[in-house]
């Protein structure tokens, strides 16, 4: 019997961070894709393409809003956290 337990990923706290951006078009989203892929700690991300705020939504267990804002701003886009 193999008694080694896998890491308890399911129990890791998961946070949803949401930002208002100017990632308007598919092109913009395409442009940030590789950057997002390179950030460790992003479990899933998406941009709401069909809504006016172009909300960037991120699922992460340990990244902070400022981490995301820094990266998106460096890529030349506006990014501000939507308050709870």
């Amino acid at each position: 019997m193999n008694n080694i337990k896998p890491a308890m990923y399911a129990k890791t706290a998961l946070n949803v961070l949401v930002f208002k951006t100017n990632l308007v078009s598919a092109k913009d989203i395409h442009r940030i894709s590789p950057i997002m892929g390179d950030i460790p700690g992003i479990l899933r991300w998406n941009v709401d393409e069909h809504d006016i705020d172009n909300v960037l939504r991120i699922e992460t267990s340990w990244l902070l809003p400022d981490d995301i804002i820094r990266v998106i701003t460096n890529a030349g886009y506006l990014c501000e956290e939507l308050p709870d």
Binding site: N46, V47, H50, D51, D53, V55, R57, L82, P83, D84
Partner: peptide, 14 residues
Amino acid sequence: VSPATLYIYYKDRD
């Protein structure tokens, strides 16, 4: 509710 709350429940508008 705040828009942020909506995005906790739902991934996007669709």
